[in-house]
Design a protein around this nucleic acid. Structure first.
Length: 108
DNA sequence: GACATGACGGCAG
DNA sequence: CCTGCCGCCATGT
């Protein structure tokens, strides 16, 4: 496993329950900045690591773009709603307020 | 080795 | 508000 994966997983695991983060936020925090694709790629491999709350990772608009990669397409929404997050039309409601940006939250 | 693709993001039109 | 294009880096054909 590359250090990149471990880093991504670690950051995702730090996301508090009931909060979400975005690929771009993680990419920015890791330094890959604009290469959010790599974060998505890393998440694709997160299947091997169940300790990674991948459902808390959405795209910059709060859309559950990766829900299709879970056991069932509705699994992601289920998990999020069970944490108190409201999903509306495959999108995190009040996303801007729930967003947990490591580059911002961890810097305080 | 070239070309297409992807859990993305930002900017231009 | 919606579309299209480019950048990014690894993977599959």
């Amino acid at each position: 496993m590359s250090q990149f994966f471990q880093d991504v997983y670690e950051v995702v695991r730090l996301v508090p329950k009931g909060r979400v983060t975005s690929y771009g936020a993680i990419a920015n925090y890791l330094g890959t900045r604009m290469s959010a694709r790599m974060v998505g790629w890393a998440m694709n491999a997160s299947h091997a690591d169940p300790t990674v709350p991948a459902h808390r990772v959405v795209n910059s608009k709060g859309l559950l773009t990766g829900k299709m990669h879970f056991s069932t397409p509705d699994r992601m929404q289920e998990l999020l709603e069970s944490e108190g997050i409201i999903i509306e039309n495959d999108q995190v409601k009040d996303f801007n307020n729930l967003l947990w940006d490591p580059a911002r939250e961890l810097e305080l």
